[in-house]
Design a binder for these strands. Structure first.
Ligand SMILES: [Mn+2]
Ligand SMILES: [Mn+2]
Ligand SMILES: [Mn+2]
Ligand SMILES: [Mn+2]
Lengths: 217, 217
DNA sequence: AGTTAAATTTAGGTATACCTAAATTTATTT
DNA sequence: AAATAAATTTAGGTATACCTAAATTTAACT
């Protein structure tokens, strides 16, 4: 069994690598808020355990086994987030910290029970896809709302879960998964956009718009 | 915040002390399956932290603060056990290990939500009382079934959760909380008893009988 | 009371996972 | 091509929580 910290490293290496390919000591250090020296040590340990390969001074890459473990943790994290929202009625901005700890102590039996209780959900409360038990992950097509042209109507399929305050704000202006949004106007001076949600007009900053992912409707 | 291991020590000291009063290094060592030397060290640390008082070579006693912490962990453990059974449909013999880990990472907010979702339950799935949030614990009156006289009918109010195999067996012969049991006969040679549950006659060993707690009906 | 036995504590050591500071390697300037 | 800067690794050290073996204290026998 991998330790709790090993699991956190693997999960975050996986996440970084699906964005950038190569994962470096410093990118991990930034993400985990752990000193580069400590990250370097842990990488050596993980390489010995066979969950990743390390080219010194260059970067790391997960092995097949490492990828499987990472996806399993991500699955547990997202299932648990879904459970917190659907069953315990947490808000989507309250769940990440809870899931961050729980993903490591969730037994396979509990994973099973929760998956079943939720009816095998495909995404978590932020719209992130839940990997299958054998590590398959299909990302639904979507693009950031910042790319949407004025005049079009889109449906929200995912909101970045990276900032809990932003999640709370975004919910407060009526944005939720599957909600339809009509883009009325795009401001050229600051790239913000005027949108209509539930018949309310709201201005959305470019930062927010780039964290909301939508599909055309 | 107390560490996970500190919490385990406090919880088990509380449990031992409600049975025996004084808790010794060796009784804790037995219960936690940790060497006496390690227990002795940890006791010193907990005494410094102020959660217990230690009379060297004599034993330990929880302070008010220690007792509060212990009861809080017990509350989380039992609420979580109840949740596993009521919501996720685990069996009562599968839940202790899960709760043993979960009691430490359950936030106060989650404790609240689960308590609410369950309608403020008074006992866990084994009939053990759930302490209130401010540390009150009322033990319902009950006596071991081994003390029941032949001819009387009793209701099950608690089953010792100390052995998961026993829990499974006991369930398999139809015993559950609130179930009525009629004691037909007590065998003098081995102290086993012949009882009637749901119109089935079953023989119950003295060991089992002393782990089932009942009230008169 | 003196000896032996049991319980407890202390001493010395291990593994995990972190840290800062120093050394090394790689990348970027001039 | 050097020199400087940045990234990375190694060295040396900390805290937690465990261990075995040795020392100490308390309890139990003759
Ligand atoms: Mn985590
Ligand atoms: Mn999420
Ligand atoms: Mn525990
Ligand atoms: Mn229980």
């Amino acid at each position: 069994m991998a330790s709790e910290q090993s699991e956190n490293y693997l999960k975050n290496i996986y996440k970084l690598s699906s964005g950038e390919g190569k994962v470096t000591t410093s990118s991990l250090s930034d993400k985990l808020q752990i000193s580069p020296a400590s990250v370097s040590e842990m990488i050596k340990k993980l390489a010995e355990e066979g969950t990743l390969t390390h080219t010194p001074y260059k970067g790391v890459e997960l092995t097949e086994e490492g990828k499987k473990l990472a996806l399993r943790i991500i699955r547990k994290h997202r299932l648990w987030e879904m459970f917190l929202v659907e069953v315990l009625h947490f808000r989507w901005d309250e769940i990440d910290d809870e899931a961050e700890r729980f993903e490591h102590i969730m037994s396979d039996k509990m994973e099973e029970k929760i998956d079943h209780a939720l009816g095998h959900p495909l995404t978590d409360p932020h719209g992130d896809p839940i990997p299958t038990k054998d590590g398959e992950l299909k990302c639904p097509m979507s693009h950031p709302m910042s790319d949407v042209r004025a005049g079009s109507t889109v449906r929200v399929v995912r909101v970045s879960d990276s900032n809990s305050e932003m999640l709370q704000y975004v919910a407060s202006i009526g944005i939720a998964l599957n909600k339809e949004i009509h883009v009325k106007q795009k401001m050229s001076f600051d790239n913000s956009m005027l949108v209509k949600i539930d018949n309310n007009e709201v201005n959305i900053s470019s930062t927010i718009a780039s964290n909301i992912f939508v599909e055309n409707v």
